[in-house]
Amino acid sequence: MKILAWLTGILGVVALYLAFIVAPEEAVMGPPQRIFYFHVASAWTAYLGFLVVFVASIAYLRTGARKWDRLAFSSAELGVFFTSMALLSGMTWGRAAWGIWWDWEPRLTSTFILWLVYIGYLFTQMTAEGDEKRARIAAGLGIIGFLDVPIIHMSVRWWRSLHPEVVRPGKMQMEPMMGVALLFAVVTFTLFYVYMLKWRVRTEDLRDRLFHLKEIMRQRGAAASRRG
């Protein structure tokens, strides 16, 4: 955990340095283009998070082990967080590049739908009745939601392609240093995700252990009061 924290911190500084200082300024857009590194990294991490939800959900249905459910839930929370980041940075980008916050840009639109899907997942985790039932229902949702992701992308792209596409300024020219900065941003965000996920899962474990101890105390108390 410690090493991971340090690694994430150091890489974070490097990534910031690369993105803001080393990477050349993009010719057309200027400074706002630097949002791009964090936008792409957030989006990537979000997808990674949802992939983990998907895999953990399948594992839960196959094994019934609580740890998979906790992992899926934790990862979904982080996925929603990074999706929100991707959405906000994407909107900021749109504002800087085209002067408009929201323009139904296909990738951003499907990210928004994705965000809604997993908000629904979190709601379900919070409102479902019964411990195991909740976990099973959420797992079903985690599976079907992820399988819908590529289909949502396809349909949104297709939907936008039916409208005449305005040729916009802001198509970037990628220079080598930009690629390096992007790579560092992606790696940093991924490490950050892993670090946060570990914490989140640990918190859930501790919560579980606490319930367990409470239960033991309750049973002991009941036994004691019965004896005398």
């Binding site: 739908i113 819908d148 949502i152 349909s155």
Partner: peptide, 25 residues
């Protein structure tokens, strides 16, 4: 799925419309 939750009437639309986006489009 939603019928097993406390807020099924509200939850169902929340779940269904995003997942159904491809069909709607």
């Amino acid at each position: 799925l939603a019928s097993n939750t406390r807020a099924s009437e509200v939850l169902l639309p929340v779940l269904i419309f995003p997942l159904l986006a491809p069909v709607i489009i």
